[in-house]
Amino acid sequence: MTNLETLVEAIHDGASVALAPDYSGCAMAAVRALVRRGARDLRLIAVPQAGFQADMLIGAGCVGSVEAAAITLGEYGFAPRFTDAVKNGRITLRDSTCPAIHAGLQAAEKGVPFMPLRGILGSDLLTHRDDWKVIENPFSPDDAIVALPAIRPDVALFHAASADRHGNVWIGVRRELMLMAHAAHRTLVTVETVVDDDLLADEARAAGTIPALYVSAIAEVREGAWPIGLAGRYPADAAHLAEYARLARTAAGFERYLDEHVRGRASAA
């Protein structure tokens, strides 16, 4: 077990960082810690889309590139800092599609160099991704298929409900977090609570548990997903998210948000 500030120190400037979507396990407290640290040139990988985490990191100047199927605040609208950074060419875009990101991570999970995926042919995504190749199906003539390189993030960063003292992390049904942990070099997790028993001892819980062998560091952070919700624990703070979406429409408003809720919350994480 470590603390939040030490946990994010392991995310070096320039690292590729896989992030979960807003409906899964968002490590918002860790994102705020990265902003406070002044992280730079992070290469975000949204699995497969990202929301508030990505928008805040982009707005705070922590991000060099984004690989994503979408960056959006969902019902709170377009992601304003992302949109602004795109228009002004401040970040490198690697536009993708949901299953392409999953497939790249699955290749890394299997330790193979690429994964083929149906679809995509004829999409302008392919035109702009020089790392995606069209190959012939070796088992059938005249059957082109897209080959996607393995995605091996330097870091997978997410928040989960609980961990045990052996370093196992319980994610329940949110198995995209398992995929992220399998694929990444290092997996950094914030959790609501640390439990005293062994999560792998009970089969019902073990099925939804990432074994410690994939987990590099864990920090206990209460309400570590706030203002995003955590399924089964707490709902999203809708008023706060709406306030973020409103303020982040302008650079000045976003700075005000950071001063009030990120830089000013150093002790409260």
Binding site: Q49, A69, T72, F82, V86, T97, P99, L117, R118, L121
Partner: peptide
Amino acid sequence: NLVGIDGYPASRVRFPGSFGSAFMYFV
């Protein structure tokens, strides 16, 4: 088009992104 209007990558209007469309539309 779920990506943007008028130019790429620095689109004048940027949408969230393609989501799963480039795959689901085929299968």
